Simulated assay, not measured.
Amino acid sequence: MITTAKYIRVSSKGQNEARQKDSSMVEYFDTISGVIPFTERPEAIRLLEDVRTGKIKTIVVHSVDRLGRNAYDIQTTMELLNREDINLIVENLGLHSRIDGRQNPIFKMICDLLANVSQIERESIKERIAEGIAIAKTKGKYKGRVKGIIETNEEFLSKYKSEIKLIKNDSFSLSQLNKMTNISINTIRKIKSML
């Protein structure tokens, strides 16, 4: 049966995905950084498999930046979906990539522009975080993790429940896992040693 899918992405567990949810569609939900290429995200991979088998013909995203935070990757993903004759709908713009089965040139123009804006926004966020940490350090307010905290393996692993499945997957390198989960490489090594 051909259906419409909603692709949802949040960068971290703390983010609220409610604005992206839509129970009227099949949902594919990734908690992963937008810098990870679309074709390397677990739920996006599953979505693309369903596209290739013909189960999905329309994909809805809340905004262009849900596809990613790298302009090249967003444009590559849109081109991949176009080759599969997928109608990509960007909700917050009310734009469809295909109209009457043909590619919508206005969609491509606007989304290419927004892909670049998304990348610039991510770089700006990184700069603001680094500046904030530097200011907090000079004021003595940023100290990092408190030393001497002791927790059991179960308590430690319980903080990473949603990431453990990815970390168990040996097809990803430590640096890929770091980008996908926003967990440091040393912490990923520690998790792997406990599994």
Rank of each mutant, 00 (worst) to 15 (best):
R102A: 13
A134G: 12
L93S: 12
E121D: 08
M78P: 09
A71H: 11
G132P: 05
I133Q: 05
N104W: 00
E84N: 11
V117H: 03
V90C: 11
L93R: 06
T138P: 00
D73A: 14
A136T: 04
S118K: 09
K147N: 03
K143W: 02
R128Q: 15
G101Y: 02
I135P: 00
G148W: 02
D112T: 12
L95Y: 14
S124E: 13
Q103A: 15
G132E: 12
Y142V: 05
D100V: 00
P105F: 01
T77M: 02
E121N: 09
Q119L: 04
E123A: 13
A136V: 05
L113I: 14
E127C: 01
I86T: 05
N92W: 01
G148K: 02
L95F: 01
R83H: 07
E91L: 06
T77A: 14
R83I: 00
A130M: 08
Y142D: 03
E84W: 10
L114A: 01
Y142A: 09
D73T: 10
R145P: 00
E123M: 10
K126C: 06
E84R: 07
N70R: 14
Q119V: 02
G132S: 04
N82D: 14
F107W: 00
F107H: 10
L80P: 02
S118C: 03
E121F: 02
C111A: 15
F107K: 04
G101N: 07
D112L: 13
T138N: 14
G140E: 07
I110F: 08
P105V: 04
E123C: 08
Q119F: 05
I89Q: 15
R98K: 07
Q103K: 02
Q75Y: 05
G140L: 12
S124G: 08
K137V: 04
H96C: 05
S97H: 05
Q119N: 01
V146N: 15
N104K: 07
K139H: 09
D100P: 00
Y72F: 13
M78Y: 11
K108L: 09
I125L: 11
D100W: 01
S97R: 08
S124K: 13
L95K: 12
N92R: 14
I125E: 06
I110N: 11
K126Y: 12
I89V: 10
V90H: 12
T138H: 13
G140H: 02
M109C: 15
E127H: 06
I99K: 11
A136N: 10
Y142R: 07
S124I: 04
N87R: 09
R122Q: 07
V90I: 03
I120Y: 08
K108D: 15
I125S: 08
L95D: 02
N87W: 01
I125A: 03
K139R: 10
G144M: 05
R69A: 08
Q103R: 14
D73P: 09
V117Q: 09
I74Y: 11
S118A: 15
I86M: 11
N104M: 03
E79P: 01
P105A: 06
G140T: 03
M109E: 15
T76R: 14
T76K: 13
Q75D: 12
L113A: 15
N70Y: 08
V90K: 13
N104S: 02
Q75I: 03
N70F: 06
I89P: 11
G148F: 01
K139S: 05
C111Q: 14
